[in-house]
Amino acid sequence: MLRDITLGQYYPTDSHVHEMDPRTKLFGTLIYIIALFLFNNVLGWLVVTGFLILAIHTCKVPLSYMVKGLKAIVMLLLIAAAFNLFLTSGTPIFTIGPLSISDVGLRNAGLMTIRMIYLIVGTSIMTLTTTPNQLTDGLERSLHFLNRVHIPVHEIAMMMSIALRFIPILIEETDKIMKAQMARGADFESGGIIKRAKAMVPLLVPLFVSAFRRANDLALAMEARCYHGGEGRTKMKPLQYHGVDRVGYLVIFIFLVLVIASRIVYPMLMGLIGV
């Protein structure tokens, strides 16, 4: 149960998207998000949908994994859609009692729902195909330029990857200690707030002790291997662009051009038809 959150959401399989450099994927996700807010007509929607389907298809992750994230925001989506539907002014096209739905409202609600769903599904492709470590690596390289303004990018990335690495370990540890104390008759589930808070002591004390022990060991191990921060540090597996990345960037670029074009072409088309 606890464990399911831990591995992030990485879904291990063999696909071109998995093979890609994390920087390519970060860039692609960024462009995708921008495009989501750029498109404003059917043509743009088709382009974005096409790109999303292409990504879903190439990454070989079952669709159910991407849709999982949607469950959490269903309520939010419904409420936001309802507000957009009923509270936007415009030409009413549908009226029930005091509530009326305008054409603008309908359009806004539709656009917003599509944008939210696409946002969740699209960004989850990124996290499903990239391990947390690759992600921090990619961020570190992409944000390298911030070093010039004296932001310690490497150190922040290192802290991030250590923290990420420790989450599953600590969760496992929590699970173990919880079981051990339950075997001694501890009860974490019943009782009022005060009783429950007290019941946490046998869990938290050993957990902190072990966290500090691990932190200590890690610091020692890093020092023993002469870790001294990012200055002049090389990587065992330096990030490198490959063929897939070139194709990736090309697809992303074409996608961006198409989305922008859709904004220009659509009104012209409409003008031609004379609407």
Partner: peptide, 20 residues
């Protein structure tokens, strides 16, 4: 189940990690 756990005692692997 709570009663079962007091009848079936369990010493975990590395039990010293549960001391508090």
């Amino acid at each position: 189940l709570k009663d079962l756990r007091t009848q079936v005692g369990m010493v975990f692997q590395y039990p010293e990690h549960q001391l508090f």
